[in-house]
């Protein structure tokens, strides 16, 4: 069942994020993907996360589609101008990729090609309108297409912000909705109460809001997140639980599994697992 249909009928959609390889060896990606085929609604393929050069999501998503997995291809505007973005979107659709997630993309300073020139010809909201235009059969120049795609596209949403920042994020979400975004995948959520607090602002269950469950690979990682990413709301309690565990890997898997169960129980339309390099652990989380 396609992701859109699954969300429409309210069947809990488990998404997993899988980074394409930095190189041409796809064996590990395909090995994990094949184990997950029957367990996930779709694989989310990032667009060079943290500005680290690796196989493009177009190539990786097409490979995964060819193995029978549905994909959500992420697209950011950092590395391509409007011609390249639209061209890749058309290639994607023709190659079987119908789900797109627009992401902002981190600055090149975070990545491994610091000297590169960023493109940023258009921004994510303009891309959303461009995708809508492509679906209506026209490119950004207004020229008619030979066959129009029918993308189901979404964007990011950060529910952990507060005050004015949250207001701006909610306004951005509204603009994306107006542009035709059909789903929103959140930044990592460690405390579901953050989502419940939004209940008077958003119908979080009807919105196709898909919270992200990030795997905590170590106590150090958890501490780093707590210190540097306050909008992820990672509690001391969670860090202590990981600290006390004799088998931290198993505990991390268990924490992710429980988080998925909580979101499913709470009535969300789905959740996305971000393995943070632990792709091979995904089958254990999704037992």
């Amino acid at each position: 069942m396609h992701l859109k249909n699954r969300l429409d009928v309210g069947e809990f959609a488990v998404l997993v994020e899988m980074e394409p390889p930095k190189g041409i060896d796809i064996s590990s990606m395909v090995f994990v993907a094949e184990k997950l085929r029957s367990k996930v609604a779709a694989v989310v393929v990032p667009d060079m996360t943290a500005a680290v050069m690796r196989m493009s999501p177009l190539g990786a998503a097409m490979i995964l589609q060819s193995k029978g997995l549905e994909t959500v291809m992420q697209v950011c505007c950092r590395d391509r101008n409007r011609l390249a973005l639209q061209g890749d979107l058309l290639s994607a659709y023709a190659g079987g990729i119908s789900n797109i997630m627009i992401v902002d993309g981190q600055d090149l300073a975070f990545g491994d090609h610091h000297q590169a020139k960023a493109v940023d010809d258009i921004d994510g909201e303009q891309l959303a309108r461009a995708i809508k235009g492509l679906c209506q059969g026209r490119d950004m120049a207004g020229t008619e297409l030979l066959g129009a795609p029918a993308f189901f596209f979404g964007a990011e949403f950060n529910p952990g912000l507060e005050g004015d920042e949250l207001e701006q994020e909610l306004e951005r979400l509204d603009r994306y909705k107006d542009a035709g975004a059909g789903f929103f995948i959140t930044t990592p959520v460690f405390d579901p109460a953050v989502l419940e607090n939004l209940a008077d602002r958003l119908d979080v269950r009807q919105l196709n809001l898909i919270p992200t469950v990030m795997m905590l690979k170590s106590v150090g990682m958890a501490r780093y997140i707590q210190r540097n990413m306050p909008h992820f709301h990672l509690s001391d309690q969670l860090i202590r639980r990981l600290q006390k565990a004799s088998d931290k890997t198993r505990e991390a898997v268990q924490i992710a599994r429980e988080a998925l169960a909580v979101l499913r129980e709470a009535g969300f339309k789905g959740a996305m697992l971000a393995p943070m390099g632990w792709e091979r652990k995904l089958p254990e989380v999704l037992v």
Partner: peptide, 12 residues
């Protein structure tokens, strides 16, 4: 060599 654009606007 490929130009280092950090000294241009690309470094912020």
């Amino acid at each position: 060599a490929a130009k280092d654009w950090r000294t241009a606007r690309d470094g912020g």
